[in-house]
Amino acid sequence: MNSEHEHQNQVGARRRASPFNRIGGLPPITVALYLALLGITVMFVVLVAAYVATRLRSGLPTGLHALPRYFSLSTIVLVLSSFVISQAPRLYAEDDLGTLARCLGATLFLGCVFAGLQVLGWRELMANGVPFQGASSNSSGQFVYLISALHVAHLLGGMLFLLTLLLRVVHANRDAVRTLVFIRNPYQRRHLTLLGTYWHFVDVLWVALFAIFLFLY
């Protein structure tokens, strides 16, 4: 009897040992995502602060170089992609995997377009006399490359997860039984929710960065 109580106490101790069970009852993967988003936010805040400090220290007037028009186009594309992926939870709830696959595919395509427009924006920066590296009177312009590139890198990470989920949806949609299993699986629902959260975060992050570039560049 004593050994049974000891075993139960050990099991209870192991359960209490997990820090994730004490954070609002959230699943570990959700907590990990929120911590990652917090870390990303802090990193970009530090980079933006360094950019602003360098920009003000340079003493150059704003509007000396035009902000690449491709950055404006890419902002529209990313906002559109955020709207598209916001339809995914509704399609999942309606068991419409075919349309859900097209929704995720369209979001993936728009993400690729955004990344391509960012590259064109970098080329436009160089054409406007803002080098990627080296001595320059407008050294703050190099932060624009860095911040934009890091944002694209984080978007690509989301696109890889999006592609994985898209392939799962396409596979499940080929068979009625697989469709039923996929729709009733809370694991898949959670992944779809986390993907949407991350994508909207990346969207809002870029809009904030673009606004800062627009007023201080």
Rank of each mutant, 00 (worst) to 15 (best):
R123W: 00
N128T: 01
T99C: 03
G105T: 03
M126R: 04
L78C: 08
N128V: 00
H154V: 12
I76G: 12
S139T: 01
L67M: 14
L110R: 05
I76W: 12
L64E: 10
G121W: 02
L100N: 09
S74R: 00
A153P: 09
G121N: 04
P89M: 10
V119L: 03
G111Y: 09
Q87S: 02
M126F: 02
C103W: 01
L110T: 12
G158S: 08
V113A: 14
E124W: 04
Q118G: 14
G98Q: 14
R69Q: 13
P89Y: 07
S148M: 14
G121D: 03
E124A: 13
F71C: 10
Y145A: 09
A135F: 12
A149Y: 11
W122A: 01
L73M: 10
T107C: 05
G98S: 15
Q133C: 09
D96S: 15
A127Q: 11
E124V: 04
R90I: 01
A127P: 03
S136C: 06
S139K: 00
F132P: 01
Y70T: 15
G63C: 03
A88D: 11
L110H: 06
M126Q: 08
G116P: 12
H154M: 15
V130K: 05
Y70E: 15
M126E: 14
D95P: 09
E124I: 06
L64Y: 08
A149W: 11
L73N: 04
I85L: 13
L80V: 14
S137G: 13
F109M: 14
I147D: 14
H154P: 08
G116L: 13
S137M: 10
L150D: 07
F83I: 14
A135E: 12
L104Q: 03
G129W: 09
S81N: 06
Q118K: 12
